[in-house]
Write a protein that binds this DNA or RNA. Structure first.
Length: 263
DNA sequence: ATGGTAGCGCTGCTA
């Protein structure tokens, strides 16, 4: 099985590139973020024509998350599960079971700045994400939580950590909340496979940051141990950040080896 | 140099 996550930064603008990318990479499951579409504007029929079932949780203008699947979609949960707390007023999370694995597509709040109310919302959101995951998955089960976390887990995931002192994306509080997901049983499957720095998934559109190599690794694939143990290959597809009208994020792709019988 | 670009939608916010 091949699965991927991609913050497309407006599916309305990016649909041609997403279609082209799906044809080339052919993932079985794709989690998208920042579709910036209302549900009734989501191009489900276009994806159906490419062989994908889809579910979308959107609000229009901002946010919006989706899951595409060639291996079935059921047990869909849009927004946080009720038992985790109050529903999120933003469309930032959707979960579904595809091909025997529970997938969650997340668009974690940016935070804006450490003194902004939106940063407190980000911290509360991450705490609720853990409760959500604990409700719909188990550490010894098969689950994947992937998307735009807006957190660089370590300084090696940042092109110049000194520029992020006192800023969001690297603060101890948000990193600690990410670590709680790891403590629960979620493995950063890309980092488990590659130890190098300079492996980024997002680059600011401004100032030629992509071409200057000034990026962050904030698009993460977290998986339970049983899934992580099946990872055969993974890549951040930098080619998707090139060319005409790219998203500011690159997709992260993961291949699983065929599981043993009964696994 | 405290800059720069992109998307949404029409003024300035969000990232």
């Amino acid at each position: 099985m091949r699965f991927a996550t991609w913050n497309v930064n407006s599916l309305k603008v990016r649909l041609p590139r997403v279609e082209e990318w799906l044809a080339e990479v052919q993932p079985d499951v794709l989690c998208m973020q920042e579709t910036k579409l209302a549900d009734d504007a989501f191009p489900a029929l276009t994806f159906q024509g490419l062989g994908y079932e889809s579910v979308h949780h959107g609000q229009g203008q901002w946010n919006g998350v989706a899951i595409l699947s060639k291996v079935g979609i059921d047990d869909v949960v849009a927004n946080f599960v009720p038992s985790s707390g109050d529903p999120d007023p933003d469309a930032r999370i959707i979960s579904a079971r595809c091909g025997g694995i529970g997938f969650t597509s997340v668009y974690v709040p940016n935070g804006r700045s450490l003194d902004n109310d939106h940063y407190q919302y980000k911290l509360r959101w991450l705490a609720q994400l853990r409760r959500h995951v604990d409700t719909i998955a188990a550490p010894d089960g098969a689950a994947v939580v992937m998307g735009d976390f807006n957190i660089a887990p370590e300084d090696r995931d940042v092109y110049d950590p000194s520029k992020f002192v006192g800023a969001t994306h690297t603060s101890p509080a948000e990193r600690a909340l990410l670590a709680e997901l790891h403590d629960w049983g979620m493995v950063d499957v890309f980092r488990e496979r590659y130890d190098e720095d300079r492996l980024y998934s997002w680059w600011d559109y401004r100032a030629g940051d992509f071409h200057q190599g000034r990026g962050l690794r904030i698009d993460l694939v977290l998986a339970t141990r049983s899934v992580a143990d099946r990872v055969a290959w993974s890549v951040i597809d930098r080619n998707a950040r090139k060319g005409t009208s790219p998203s500011d994020h690159a997709p992260v792709v993961v291949d699983l080896a065929e599981s043993a019988v009964g696994a």
